[in-house]
Design a protein around this nucleic acid. Sequence first.
DNA 1: CAGCCCTAGATTGCACACAATCCACGGGAC
DNA 2: GTCCCGTGGATTGTGTGCAATCTAGGGCTG
Lengths: 221, 221
Amino acid sequence: MTRTVTSTERALAALRELILRGQFTAGARLGEVELAERLGVSRTPVREALTRLAAEGLVELVPNRGARVASWSVAELEGVFDLRSALEPRLTGLAVPRAQPADVAALEELAAEMLTVGLPGPHQDLDALVPLNRRFHGRLVVIADQSALATALAGAIHAPIQLRNFRAYDEASLRRSLAHHVEIVAAIRAGDPTWARAVMTAHIHNARAVMLRAAREQEAS
Amino acid sequence: MTRTVTSTERALAALRELILRGQFTAGARLGEVELAERLGVSRTPVREALTRLAAEGLVELVPNRGARVASWSVAELEGVFDLRSALEPRLTGLAVPRAQPADVAALEELAAEMLTVGLPGPHQDLDALVPLNRRFHGRLVVIADQSALATALAGAIHAPIQLRNFRAYDEASLRRSLAHHVEIVAAIRAGDPTWARAVMTAHIHNARAVMLRAAREQEAS
DNA sequence: CAGCCCTAGATTGCACACAATCCACGGGAC
DNA sequence: GTCCCGTGGATTGTGTGCAATCTAGGGCTG
């Protein structure tokens, strides 16, 4: 009894993955016919996928002029990180009392794996860090089980995709970021929401500093 | 040079207005053909309007089973108000230094008008309160000019539409709510973001208490 | 009589064709 | 040379028909 999946869903998932993986440069035009051919469906599901991605904030939709991959100015990025720092610590705090042992184990494994591929050494692979990071933060959202918060966050977490790799991080910031994940797991294991919230706040502000620096450099060029 | 509007936009605006005005009961089925006839367009723009409204959180979209007017459980409502109390005071604080004299005047007029139609007396008209309230909060969003925050809020502000009239308010709560609007304008005029944030926080928690009580009663029935 | 299957009607999902709109590129006027 | 305007090609917007899917109801089986 495999649930049949509609073309729209496939197009949506495929497109989101393409964008998140950075297959398009920020601001790149997304022609409907081109995407339709590339994904092997007609324009109709492509259009629907595009409007949904626009709602997620991944693409920008201009009437009569089609879709572009979303991009953010430095000012907008500041707003986005401001938002994240309001929402994500709160979400983390809510997740603490709800986390099951399986959740903690999963988070712990993700955090450990990120240490492996994130730190300098033979296993370093900064690109592998991106999906792991997404899964870590995504898991927290699932645990918290707050649909309103989740949808509100969805629009914000995708924002820094244009600086989507971790190459923007200097080594000190990267080590901090990886350590934060581990510490968040520790706080959850200890059942201490205040601790978890605090670390998440630091985590986001650390990322904010890195991203804004990178965005400023990029904007200056 | 009147900007031509697409059928989708008209359908979107019309549908949103219908839902917000409470022309449908919460959970009501929204058939595509029925809406298409009612709005005088084909199914295509209706479908697109529905997906966009789903993104706004006004309708729920189930694959192969169409659209329904969104509804919220008590638990979800709690989450929504939690979210609003995190975002809207912050937004209000950001709006304070940005408000122009014209903005303050507009807010003041709205607050005054709400007093007129809200308080018991010959001019009382609780239904007229709804759009005024929307305009007041919407104006604050415009003034703050924070697109990320605005989109995050958009999903939350529509939530209580099923209890969309102000009849759920007991008189004390209603008086408080109306007074809050006036006081927010005073705080903005004084250029005091802390004051504005505080009143907005109180405003939302006041609404939260009313709405949750109403929702519980409704759910119990 | 309860439960299951199967069919019929209704509804959504998708593709395609045509209409409306936009954008780039020349040609002309000043 | 610069600006304006018109035209052609490309792209998005919309209508419609058909396929896929769901839901309700009746008849069959145990």
